[in-house]
Nucleic acid binder design. Structure first.
Lengths: 154, 154
DNA sequence: TCAAATCATTCAATGCATGAATGATTCGCA
DNA sequence: TGCGAATCATTCATGCATTGAATGATTTGA
């Protein structure tokens, strides 16, 4: 046991995840910037793609943000032609958001950018380690009620 | 291989790390709030404790933030009595920051709070899995030039 | 010795996100 | 059937973290 030194804060999952998460987000943000997207726009598209929510209020719940923020995010995505906004005929208070074909293409582009960012960010990990990390993060995500990559939504 | 469904964005390390990191930070922030601290204040204390930097400009470099932000963070910590600010006699432009005894105690309290937050956040992971996760995050952190828990600073 | 560089600090500006207020629609109940 | 309360989306003003530019003090190098 050679690792001495630093206090527990620094080896805490919560603390380190926070610091690295901010860096990861910055890196990803830089990659998608050219498409006029921020990470939360991609997050919204992921939620739609996962079929986890359709009305804006539900989306706000899944994303853990204020409903008014969803309005702004959806405005941008709609302007880009990535989503459609349709009043629910059964309840005309609700706005139902769906990915357009162009939205799916845009999401696919973001997927590639995310993978290229992964290659840079996790360059020190072997493929096996990377898979372990993804699996563990997925378990944590599932517990937080996020769309999980190992849940088939259909 | 049952995991079908979602696109690669959602299983990307960078993307998922970002989302979970934000949640982790929120959780940790809530725990330390009563001590008038934000995560970045703790981050600054960790840097000092690790002996990674002493002048404010160095600290800004390690933390990846603007020097003017370090001023504000240090102001708060000094007001709380957690750090001392002393002009370097050899170069009186530099402010040398050091943890006070109270600062070390405060950091210890944050350590406990971080661990309790860990217990909640990673409740689904076994102790072994948690250790693996910490190790992998540590590898990533080291690559990003952060104070690593497995680096003895002395 | 003096001009350029360096460090800390202040200050104004930016951008993300929130909560309260508003309007439209639906629901529950008398 | 009708009316008040609840629900959803939207707008708006506000708060807060962070940045970059401007300023002042000090050091460095020529």
């Amino acid at each position: 046991m050679l690792s001495v030194a630093l206090g527990k804060v620094n080896s805490s999952v919560v603390f380190r995840l926070g610091v690295l998460g901010a860096m990861a987000t910055d890196l990803f943000a830089a990659r998608i910037e050219a498409h006029e997207l921020k990470p939360k726009h991609v997050g919204l598209m992921v939620v739609l793609d996962a079929g986890r929510a359709s009305s804006q209020l539900e989306i706000a719940g899944v994303m853990g943000v204020a409903p008014s923020l969803v309005v702004a995010l959806a405005d941008r995505l709609q302007k880009l032609g990535a989503i459609e906004r349709v009043r629910d005929p059964a309840d005309r208070r609700r706005q139902v958001l769906t990915l357009t074909e162009h939205g799916r293409e845009l999401l696919a582009v973001c997927e590639e950018l995310a993978q290229s960012a992964d290659a840079e960010f996790a360059a020190d990990l072997t493929a096996a380690e990377s898979a372990v990390l993804t699996g563990l993060l997925d378990r944590l995500a599932a517990r937080q009620g996020l769309p999980s990559a190992s849940n088939d939504p259909k």
